[in-house]
Simulated assay, not measured.
Amino acid sequence: MPSTLATYFAFPGNTAEVLEHWHSVLGGELEIVRYSDMPLEGLPFEPDPNAVAHATLKLPAGEIAGSDVVDDKEYPLRDTAYSLLYTAETPDEARELFQGLLDGGGTVGMPLEIAPWGDLYGQVFDRFGVMWAFSYENA
């Protein structure tokens, strides 16, 4: 099996909602495994059976994975220290995905337009606070 690299998120109890939303916008193949779907013997904690143990959204361009946080600490999601960069095959695809996240409750971080370096580029914070950057090269 070849090496892979995926983005992994730990969401505050709403992993299923987040990945279902992304799946509705981006498409792909979504798989969600809850703690109730697996044996729990040997875990060093007692999880909520409905919590997401592991979820994956497989897209042609890569994979996004995540799970629910199992402790009661607060972890900030909205930040500009990270983003998901999606380089689209066409300008229309970039516009459609950007708009899909806006329509789902997101806010514009940077309008999707031709950037000084010549690419179509823009940023949107989805309704969960995750920053997405969309690009189409050499627009």
Rank of each mutant, 00 (worst) to 15 (best):
H21W: 02
L77I: 15
Y82L: 13
D72I: 05
T7V: 15
E137D: 10
P111L: 04
L59Q: 01
N50K: 13
E31D: 09
A51M: 06
T7Q: 11
G122A: 06
P76D: 10
A94Q: 00
H54I: 09
S36V: 13
D103R: 05
L57C: 05
P12N: 14
A16T: 06
D37Y: 10
E113F: 02
P44N: 09
L59M: 09
M110V: 11
N138V: 06
I32L: 14
F45E: 11
W117V: 08
A81H: 05
A51I: 08
D72G: 05
E46Q: 15
L77Y: 13
W117Q: 06
E46N: 14
P60F: 01
M110I: 04
P111K: 08
L120F: 14
D72R: 10
R95M: 07
E46M: 04
F125N: 04
F9L: 15
P49D: 04
L77D: 00
G109S: 08
Q99F: 04
Y75M: 11
S36R: 15
G13D: 11
M38V: 15
P91A: 11
T7H: 08
L43S: 09
V108D: 00
E74Y: 14
T4M: 13
L84A: 04
F128T: 03
G118Y: 05
L112V: 05
W117M: 11
T90C: 11
F134H: 04
V69P: 01
S24F: 01
Y136I: 00
I32T: 14
